[in-house]
Amino acid sequence: MSEKLPRPSSLWEYANPRRFMALSGATLPFVAAGTTVALIVGLAWGFFFTPDDYRQGSTVKIIYLHVPSAMVAINAWLMMLVASLIWLIRRHHVSALAAKAAAPVGATMTMIALATGAIWGQPMWGAWWAWDPRLTSFLVLFLFYLGYMALWAAIENDDTAADLTAVLCIVGSVFAVLSRYALVFWNQGLHQGASLSLDKEENVSDVFYWPLLICLAGFVGFFVLLILIRTRTEVRARRMKALQARERMT
């Protein structure tokens, strides 16, 4: 991996495993450093230096975990969808491996969002669990992640697994959106509306807004960092398999 590679002329060249390894290896330390700083600053700011909400008391501090993890949970699936489409259309192996790498991260984030939601819901709604549509959609999303990962794990041939999971991811996305609207219809929720959008006037007030943004950045960084690490692992594992197969041939 030490030979000099010519300068890439388009983004697609990063689909070349070797080039991906070079680039991701170079950026990894920066992503790791940025993520650590953002997470520590954001969470510490949120935990130690924000006032309590007059209505929700100190439970409002859970927002710094709940909202970012929920956002990453959804966007991880979105990223898997894009990666799956790229794999199906352009057959870049790195893309399929990135989708595979993202699933456990997304599932963990979903779990965090569910757990913090339940812990937050206990004092606010008086119950650990309420079949609120948003909370329920996350449970359904978690099931989707489980099915997706199980399918990856079950199929032995790598390319077949990549193809089938990509198809499942696309169909699953449609059904996940459908479920979301079905659940809203099924039970009108307890959740407050958007807690973070561009017009922050009517949303969370300033004192909570900035640490929340930093936490968001931290969680996104964490996601990117893990994707890089896990995709690199997958690329290496794939190369090893190929080498071993070649060994057996000769």
Binding site: L43, F47, G57, I62, A115, T116, I119, W120, P123
Partner: peptide
């Protein structure tokens, strides 16, 4: 709400 907040952070 100390228990709730701390457990949320711990779990995460």
């Amino acid at each position: 709400y100390a228990v709730e907040v701390l457990s949320a952070y711990a779990v995460t």
